[in-house]
């Protein structure tokens, strides 16, 4: 079995990249499993690129790593698509991981167990130190979407769907992909025994601190999903929220949304797939 691990960088701290690679090197894998690593560098910065090459060089004796620079910042999903297109071997599974975290030693093996079920197309690991609140079936682990921070995907399904939708620059592309996977009849799974450490600090409101890019691309992603899956009520409520706001950032989000959706139409999916219980949320949450 061949697993391609994909990581997309945008000027991430070298220490983080080193830790992410070390964790892959330290991973406990089942026999007959081959790992290839494909890293996309969106920094468009030749100095940074050289430094990343040095970090990769430290692992040359333990890991098979390919590095792809880009002349423009392609964003998260489009760079992952490019990495997948560039894979040299016929891969079975695709592991997408964020560079601001690392995968725990047994996690790949634990996630692999779920693929014994041919109907499972994606498996997500539990995040530490702050677990994602979305609901999952407490007995089977079935869930409505998988976070792109750490998800193991069936490569054939990723290929059938043409990967991520490139209109999502940073956030929301994982929900979109998840719902399109379910639309093909596959299941998504949450595996609490597998762990992905995702660097997070917590604000005084008790929720993870949001980065500046999250504040822009998070709401934009939510609007795009609502538009794409024809969730008219959700789209109206979210747009109203942003229009009422006096923050210039929110006006900019609406302008970008208009631009991206000028000529696009809704896609047809089963009514049961979009789970929109509350504007800004893509699933029923545990709290």
């Amino acid at each position: 079995m061949i697993i391609q691990i994909q990581i997309v960088l945008y000027k991430n701290a070298l220490l983080d990249v080193r830790r992410a690679l070390l964790a892959i090197a330290d991973s406990v894998l089942p026999d007959q499993t081959t790992i290839v690593i494909s890293i996309g560098d969106n920094s468009c910065d030749s100095n940074y690129h050289l430094k990343i090459e040095d970090v990769i060089g430290e692992f040359s004796h333990r890991l098979n790593i390919k590095l792809f620079p880009s002349e423009v910042n392609l964003g998260h999903g489009q760079m992952h698509n490019k990495l997948y297109e560039n894979c040299e071997k016929e891969i079975d599974l695709l592991l997408i991981v964020n560079p601001d975290g690392y995968i725990a030693p047994h996690s790949i093996s634990i996630m692999l167990e779920k693929f014994e079920n041919p109907n499972v197309a994606a498996v997500e690991a539990r995040q530490l130190p702050f677990e994602h609140p979305k609901m999952f079936n407490l007995i089977t682990g079935e869930t409505s979407w998988c976070s792109g921070a750490c998800v193991l995907l069936r490569a054939s399904v990723f290929k059938d769907l043409n990967g991520f939708d490139p209109r999502f620059f940073l956030h929301g592309d994982d929900v979109d992909l998840s719902w399109r996977i379910r639309n093909l009849g596959y299941e998504l799974n949450y595996q609490p025994r597998a762990v992905f450490y995702h660097s997070k600090d917590i604000a005084l409101n008790g929720y993870p601190e949001q980065s500046e890019t999250e504040k822009f691309y998070g709401p934009l992603g939510a609007l795009l999903i609502a538009h794409k899956f024809g969730l008219k009520k959700g789209l109206r409520l979210m747009s109203d929220d942003l229009m009422r706001s006096t923050e210039p950032l929110h006006k900019a989000i609406l302008r970008e949304f208009e631009l991206l959706t000028q000529h696009s139409q809704c896609i047809k999916v089963s009514n049961a797939i979009p789970e929109y219980h509350h504007p800004w949320k893509f699933s029923e949450n545990r709290y």
Partner: peptide
């Protein structure tokens, strides 16, 4: 604390509470 598929791990049911 979830038995079975969660391997006795703790699953969170609230945000951080002050």
């Amino acid at each position: 604390r979830l038995q079975g598929m969660a391997g006795n791990h703790q699953i969170s049911y609230s945000k951080g509470i002050e």
